[in-house]
Structure formats: structure tokens, C-alpha cells
Design a protein around this nucleic acid. Structure first.
Length: 420
RNA sequence: GUGGCCAUAGUUCAGUCGGUUAGAACGCCAGGAUGUGGCCCUGGAGGUCGUGGGUUCAAAUCCCACUGGUCACCCCA
């Protein structure tokens, strides 16, 4: 038996309706906020990701599915969405058409990590980006869309945390100060954090280790080192969130794992996700477009994990109604009945009635069991008797109401009974 | 990538001081005075016990490796 690749899951028929429901809400809310969908390829040039996400990040240094294609080009299955969107934005000059652009996407992503709860090698993200606006109102738009999607799915148990990670003007100053302080308390830090002091000092801050957190109690926070522009941007965002009645908490130690973030960083977290507690995350990336060869374009965006949404929804006992209910099951008692219902099924389906019948030549009893199992709303059984008498009976499987119908059948009449 | 736990019918599991044809429930299939489902009753199909080695007269059961799952670390969605 050949099975799926480790960490890559089939979405089976009994769960695909949940996915469709979630995707439907993502589409409709994104469009309500007037974002337009963008679809980019799964495969990109490897350099797109190494240049944007950062060579030193875990994603690029050890998690990407990278390989040489048949022309010896290094290609990579996309590990996140923003880089591709920005690449496409630059390549197709979307910024020339209008001063600001709002885009959203739903797409599989790939990272070769050890799978665990809420973490897969192929997973699905939904995300949105606003390119062209440097203002906090764009940040709030992104955050509020994200929150609206969560709420509309019926989630209640989540928290928004925000921070500012500064910009190219103020972050270097803070970094120097931070490295100094970290070196002072070096002996109280875990090995991993010690190693990070030089490579990526900001990441030391959000270590989950208790020992680290104790040692970091009195560490200076970036907020005190933000430049005027970053500070006012952050304050403005806070005010906008308040005006929108969007609860949030500030966590000065929130740092995100991708290098391109500037100013705003945020996460929506849930207690229901085990150790992978982020439902979604995002932030501002004012330098990325320039870095990827485009014109300087301030931008902000987020991405969320669909699998994690589904886990959180399950934990909150949100039961989805199964869509795609079967309206009519046609059963046959003999060969003539079979011929008749085959044709009738075409008419019903053309009229928009979802219709099913037996494909296995089974007994009447088996056909009816099947109708029951499929949760059919109505049943019509046809045999020689009905055809001779030119009269059919349609029966409600749940209601026990039945109607007589004359042959030739008027599909409109049938439709009105079914949709009543 | 590191570590803990796990791996028996389609599913959830029982079965280990090693010992004859490996069980249950649910699901599936067929039937129940002959053309009306669900409940009920009867019968049936379905497993080389994750894979490969080893120990033993004998392995689902003990040992090793591998693979997969799961949880945690790491990291992130």
C-alpha cells in the first residue's frame, strides 16, 4: 500500500464540507472588506523565499521543500504566502494601477517540520495583504478582517496580542541595547537562548522556557526605544482598535519569526490549540517590496492556519450543518421502473433537485436502506404498477407526508413539494 | 531535527506471566410470507495482529531496527 507522505493529509469526504464552510466564510468576509483574491503558483524560485523570509530563519534554513528541477533551477514549494503575493504584485505592476491594493488568498503551504497537533508538512493558510498604505488604518483593516473571519466562524475563545518591532531607524539601537543586556544575564539563560544572542536576539524574548522568562523579567522592552514614527503609528493603531471595539493586549515580547516585519506585529492566539497556539499572525513589512526589487511600498498583512481554525472550532463544539443534502432518492422495483427513474433523474437534476438512485441493481429493501442512509428528504418508488396506473407517490422520509403525482410528471410540481 | 507514548477487522477497542481455527461493538452485505427505509430479528463477508529481522519447540504477546501516528521540545499557521 502506498500511503500519503508524512505530515500530508487527505481531506476526506466526511470533512470536506467543514472546509467548504470555512473557505466560504473566508471568501465572503474578505470580499465584504473588499479584498480581491490572488492565486499564485505553489512553486517559486528558491531565492524569493531566502531573500524575503531571511536566510537565518528556521523556515529557510531547515524547513523548506527545495529541490532542483530538470533544468537545474532551485525551486521551492511555498512555505508562506506573503513573498509570493509581493512577487506577483511587483511582477505585474499592480501598484501602478492604483495607489493601494488589497489582496487575499487561500493556499496550501509546505514546511518540512516534525508533524504534531496543528502542525503539518502540507497545511493551508488564508491570508490578506494591503500594499501601498503606510498608515495604521491599513494595519487595523488587516486585523479587523482577521477578527471578523474568526468571529463569523463562531469562534469566541481567542485573544489578539499586538506589539511593534520598530523599523530600520530604531530597531538597530534597541538591538544593541538588548544584546548588551542579554550578555549581562547570559548565565541565567538556556543554551539555545545564549546561542541566539548574536544570531537573532529579538527571538530570545519570546522563548517559552520558564528559566528564560524569569531571567528576562527586567529586560528593556522595544517600546521604550521606538522612534517617534513607530511610536505614533503604534498608538494610532491602538486607538483605531479601541474605536472598532476590538479587544487586544499588548505584549512587548511578541516577536515574529520572519525577518521582514517592521512596526506592527500581531497574533491571534487560542487556548484550544495545544502548544501550537497561534491561530494566525501577521504584521507590517514596509521594506519587503524594495528588497524584492520593486518600488518602495509600505505593506501589511496576515496569515492564518485553516487546520488550526478547524481544531479550535471543534474544541468550541461548533457543529457545522452538513451542506449538500440529498433532496430526492429514486428507487425502482423492476426493469421498467429502472428505465423510468433513469430518465426522471435527468429531469430532476436539470430542475435543480439533487437526486440519487441505486447503481448496484439492488433489491427494493436495499435501495430504501440506501435512501435512509443518504438522509434523503423524499423518496419515489417506481415499478410497472405505477407506470400502468400512471400515478406515482412521493413520500417524505422524515415527515411521513406523501403526495400522489400523475404521469407524465410535472417537474415544477415536484419541485414545489420538495421545496415546501 | 531531539525525546515520550502508540501501531490487532472499514472504525473504536479487547486479547501479553508466549501455547491449538485472533474476539466484541459499531459499520458493511443479504434476508425476515413475496413493492416501502429507520427499530428489531437471523445469517454473512472482512484481519498473513504496521514492516523486516531476532529469541523460542511455539510470538499479536519478548528483543532490535525501520516505517507511520500522536504528544512535547524547537519553530510557527
Amino acid at each position: 500500500m502506498i500511503s500519503s507522505i508524512k505530515g500530508m493529509k487527505d481531506i476526506l469526504p466526511n470533512e470536506s464540507s467543514k472546509w467548504q464552510h470555512v473557505e466560504k466564510i473566508i471568501h465572503s468576509l474578505s470580499q465584504l472588506f473588499h479584498f480581491k483574491e490572488i492565486r499564485t503558483p505553489l512553486l517559486e524560485n528558491t531565492s524569493l523565499f531566502s531573500r524575503s523570509i531571511g536566510e537565518e530563519t528556521d523556515i529557510v534554513s531547515k524547513e523548506m521543500y527545495t529541490f532542483l528541477d530538470r533544468s537545474n533551477e532551485s525551486v521551492t514549494l511555498k512555505p508562506e504566502g506573503t513573498a509570493s503575493v509581493v512577487r506577483s504584485y511587483i511582477q505585474h505592476h499592480l501598484g501602478e494601477e492604483q495607489p493601494s491594493t488589497k489582496l487575499y488568498y487561500i493556499s496550501p503551504m509546505f514546511r518540512q517540520e516534525r508533524p504534531q497537533a496543528g502542525r503539518l508538512r502540507e497545511f493551508h493558510q488564508y491570508g490578506a495583504e494591503i500594499l501601498g498604505s503606510p498608515n495604521a488604518i491599513a494595519d487595523s483593516e488587516i486585523i479587523l478582517l482577521n477578527a471578523a473571519i474568526l468571529k463569523n466562524l463562531g469562534l469566541t475563545n481567542f485573544t489578539l496580542i499586538i506589539n511593534s518591532v520598530g523599523c530600520e531607524n530604531c530597531r538597530p539601537n534597541y538591538k544593541i541595547k538588548l544584546v548588551n543586556e542579554l550578555n549581562n544575564i547570559k548565565n541565567n539563560l538556556t543554551e539555545l537562548s545564549k546561542n541566539r544572542i548574536d544570531k537573532n536576539p529579538l527571538r530570545v524574548l519570546d522563548s517559552k522556557d520558564k528559566q528564560d522568562q524569569d531571567a528576562l523579567k527586567n529586560i528593556p522592552v522595544i517600546f521604550d526605544y521606538l522612534c517617534e514614527s513607530c511610536k505614533s503609528h503604534f498608538e494610532e493603531l491602538c486607538q483605531l482598535l479601541k474605536n472598532a471595539n476590538q479587544p487586544y493586549s499588548i505584549n512587548y515580547k511578541l516577536v515574529r519569526g520572519l525577518d521582514y516585519y517592521t512596526k506592527t506585529a500581531f497574533e491571534f492566539i487560542s487556548e484550544n490549540l495545544g502548544s501550537q497556539d497561534a491561530l494566525s499572525g501577521g504584521g507590517r513589512y514596509d521594506l519587503l517590496t524594495l528588497q524584492l526589487g520593486g518600488k518602495p511600498t509600505p505593506a501589511v498583512g496576515f496569515a492564518g492556519g485553516i487546520e488550526r481554525l478547524l481544531i479550535a472550532l471543534e474544541k468550541e463544539n461548533n457543529n457545522f450543518h452538513s451542506e449538500n443534502i440529498l433532496q430526492l432518492f429514486l428507487a425502482s422495483a423492476d426493469e421498467k421502473g429502472k428505465d423510468y427513474i433513469f430518465t426522471l433523474a435527468q429531469h430532476c437534476r436539470n430542475a435543480g433537485i439533487s437526486t440519487e438512485f441505486d447503481l448496484l441493481n439492488r433489491s427494493v429493501k436495499s435501495q430504501l436502506r440506501e435512501a435512509d442512509r443518504q438522509n434523503a428528504k423524499f423518496l419515489i418508488l417506481v415499478g410497472e404498477k405505477e407506470l400502468t396506473e400512471k400515478s406515482l407517490t412521493i413520500k417524505g422520509m422524515k415527515t411521513n407526508i406523501s403526495h400522489s403525482l400523475k404521469i407524465p410528471l410535472q417537474v415544477e410540481e415536484l419541485k414545489s413539494i420538495i421545496n415546501k
